[in-house]
Structure formats: C-alpha cells, structure tokens
Design a protein around this nucleic acid. Structure first.
Lengths: 146, 146
DNA sequence: TATTGTTATACTCTATAACTATA
DNA sequence: TATAGTTATAGAGTATAACAATA
C-alpha cells in the first residue's frame, strides 16, 4: 500500500508523480499523432525541429541524442522526400532542410499536435494561459526563487 | 489523414510545444534518476507501480504495454531480488509483489524522484500548488468545461 | 472459447567505439 | 589534433503472433 504522507516530501512526490503521469500520457498522445503521419515520435520531433538548414550535429543536440543516430533518421526522411541533405561551406558538414512536402507535413503535424495535446483537450483557455506561465518557468533554465 | 482545421493555431501550438519540452526534460530526469538505482525508466515505473500483489496482466495495463513485455521485466527484477512471483488462486495468474529490498528501493526511489523533478527544482512551493491543481485536471479523464 | 502468461521475432531508439574526410 | 558524419554493434523498449495451461 502507498504510504500517505503529509510531510513536505510527500507533497513533493505528489507533484512529481502527477507530472510523470502527464508526461507518459503526453508521450502516448504525441506518438499516436506522429503515427497518423507515418512517423515515429523521434522522426516527428526531428521534423518539428527543422525550421532552417541545420547540421546533423546541431540537430543531435536539439534532439538530445548522439550524432550517430541522426544519420539514420535523416536518411529515412530523405528517402521519403521530406528532407534534403546538402554539404555546407565546411565540407565536413551536411545541412539538413525540409522539402516543400516536408514543410507541408510539418504544418499539418503542428496543428494536429496542438489539437490533440492534453493541454488543449483538458484545459479551458483561461487555465491554458496559467499553464503556459508555469511551463515557461519549468522549461527555462532558471532556478526557483522562494 | 488528419484534417487541418485552422490556419492560426499559434496559441494552442505554443502550449502543446511547451508541454512537450517539459515532457522530454522530465523523461531524461526520470531516466537519470532510475539509473542511479541501476534501473531503466520502465523498470523504475514498474517498481513505483507495484504497491500490492498484482498480476502481470494488470501491471501491463498500468504500464500501458503488452503483457508479453512484463514477463521479461519481471524476470529481471526477480533475479535481482526486488520482486517475487507467486501463482494466484486462478492457476493461470502470477501475482507479482515487491520484496523487502524492493520496498526499500521504492521508498528511496520515490524520494529521489521527488527531489530531482522539474516541479521540485524549478517551482516555488506556491507555484507547485497551482501546478498540482492544473496537473490533476490534466491527469484526470474529465473534459474541459469552458 | 476465452484468458494468463510465455516465447520467438522484428522494428525502433539509443549509446559507444572505430573509422573517413576535412579543418 | 579536433570535429562532422558514417558504420557496426549492442542493449533496451515495444508490438504481434503462435503457443500451453487453465478457466
């Protein structure tokens, strides 16, 4: 049986547990959303991140994964005609960029993600604004100030 | 294919994108936390979920994965002395339960998860209360009411 | 017939290490 | 030497399908 606590650590675990529940549900929704477009969660994030010509190295940083993974992901997307790969002025670099089809897909994907997000389906507009305010603080790199 | 509903869903996408950023960062933190205890993210969720004797089928539902995965996960945890597996009154069923070591690990894991959660490290106590209120609505199954 | 758990299989994600081409 | 990308490899997560035991 779970231990019911009234201490501050119990409260801290409550918020952490709730957040993790939301995290898992959000992951599933995002993956389902990506699947509607024939994408996995990672390739969907790949496309949503690709706003301008970006080297594989930088994209790996954005996706928080090793550069060795980006080669394969990019290769599949190139094969599907969603991404192009061109050498940069530094000949070691390959710049990835969305094709017209890729940009069209990203626009549709963005709208679908927005429409199916937990935030959109479970919160009122007013609560969404309060939620954004808190998320901005969570997503930033600053520490809290009591 | 999903239908594109609006051309200006900027606000809805903003909150969805922010939420997804927080989701990814939370995943990484949780996985790092689990790794401190020699666990992967899934086995950590497995242990945090195991409060009372639970069949593999029910646990699979809780973890939102196929039952075929639970066999292997449980097997590894049994080998490590964290979980026991015993047949139920229905002889098809195996009931999984934490050992004393497993319960001790879970207690430590809960505290560590709470301490390293984004919610704990980035939000003040006051904001945490507001956050819990919103998360409760997100985690529940109710639809929004405008 | 239906369900629980098991096994085999396959695909994806992910990191590490060794390699090449370039800087 | 250092960096960008590639390739090979391995471990983990996950789903599907076929199977045995039980209900």
């Amino acid at each position: 049986m779970p231990t019911v606590q009234r201490s501050s650590s119990g409260d801290a675990y409550h918020v952490a547990r709730r957040l993790n529940e939301v995290v898992e549900e959000s992951r599933r929704r995002f993956a389902a959303c990506a699947a509607e477009f024939g994408l996995t969660a990672v390739t969907a994030r790949f496309i949503l991140r690709l706003h301008e010509p970006t080297s594989m190295r930088v994209l790996a940083d954005h996706l928080h994964c090793d550069k060795s993974n980006v080669t394969g992901l990019a290769s599949r997307l190139v094969d599907r005609g969603l991404v192009t790969s061109r050498p940069g002025s530094d000949r070691r670099v390959k710049n990835l960029e969305l094709t017209a089809r890729g940009r069209h897909l990203r626009a549709e994907l963005e709208q679908r993600v927005a429409a199916t997000s937990l935030a959109a389906t479970r919160l009122t507009k007013k609560d969404q604004r309060a939620f954004i305010d808190l998320l901005d603080r969570l997503a930033g790199s600053e520490a809290k100030r009591e």
